[in-house]
Nucleic acid binder design. Structure first.
Lengths: 166, 166
DNA sequence: ATACATGCAAAATGTTTGCAGACTG
DNA sequence: CAGTCTGCAAACATTTTGCATGTAT
């Protein structure tokens, strides 16, 4: 059957080749933020007749069509995720590289206002927090998870220190 | 005389070679966010005996020492600016690529709280807004510039649409 | 049938590194 | 003088592209 991304491709009049169908499926099923290499790996597992150039071309195309969003969490490689309806942000665990997604409508509103105050309409934004898990002794880690939405575990580790370098 | 960055280098026990002195001066005098290529250009203008490898090594070193901060405004190249005392953020004009710096202590507080709520201590962050100058007809563009601090004009144009690609 | 996609390998970028010689503290 | 630093060119890693061929519509 037809993956969500395949449907979006068709809606936008893109030709559905076998490769695109596979890549669309991989992207639709991903809950993390794979880079091109990883997408290539997953797609190849489903159908070996896919070249990495096609993966590059496809993610670029899908990004232009607004179907995908490109992210850069450091490490020098672009990572992708399907465009979501609501904005969300990323908090990266500086020790493990794990990416935690969260949304915050209040923050979003505030950023729009901020841009407006500077005389701009916000077109897009990028917000990434790098943090260290705070293991305050004797803390109970209360249910402060109101805003937590997705906890996607990304494969690639590392990302220590400040902004990770490539 | 001794540039601000040269002083910081000495404080941290770095050897001051001619090249470093030049690069330090270029960085101290920069009010924008030059990439390595641009730093190399400016440094070379002052002293031709500098190789781009040295510029790369120097910015990396200075970043590790906390003297410089690396930025990524898209476009695939790292850009640098001297570490400032207070945090500030960037709004990039999606049409011209101009970078506007601004600070917002309230926002900063909020982001720290947000991270804390997710169980993390904020180590660093990245916030970039991409906007389009809002030319609302009949608007008077009131003095809403309370928070505007620096308007650094960066050389490289472009950056249309969403996040600019490399 | 035709416009668009693909694979392959080559090229383009941006950045890092090995090494031999040069310089700073 | 020892430990760093530099220039150069080669090595790397990621992404893009030219071209001939294949395919969806």
């Amino acid at each position: 059957m037809e993956s969500r991304i395949e449907r979006l491709c068709i809606e936008r009049g893109l030709k559905m080749t076998g490769q695109r169908r596979i890549i669309g499926r991989v992207l639709t099923e991903a809950t993390d933020h794979p880079d091109v290499e990883e997408l290539y790996r997953r797609a190849s597992a489903l159908d070996a007749r896919i070249s990495i150039a096609t993966v590059y071309r496809t993610v670029r195309l899908l990004e232009e069509k607004g179907i995908l969003e490109r992210r850069d969490f450091g490490g020098g490689r672009a990572r992708y995720e399907a465009s979501a309806q609501g904005h969300h942000y990323h908090l990266i665990d500086a020790e493990s590289g794990r990416v935690i997604e969260f949304a915050d409508p209040a923050l979003e509103r505030q950023l729009h206002q901020l841009a407006a105050r500077l005389g701009f309409d916000l077109v897009s934004m990028r917000l990434e927090l790098f943090g260290r898990r705070n293991t305050v002794a004797g803390e109970d880690r209360p249910a402060h998870a109101e805003r937590r939405e997705t906890v996607a575990r990304d494969e690639q580790g590392s990302a220590l220190g400040g902004l990770p370098r490539r």
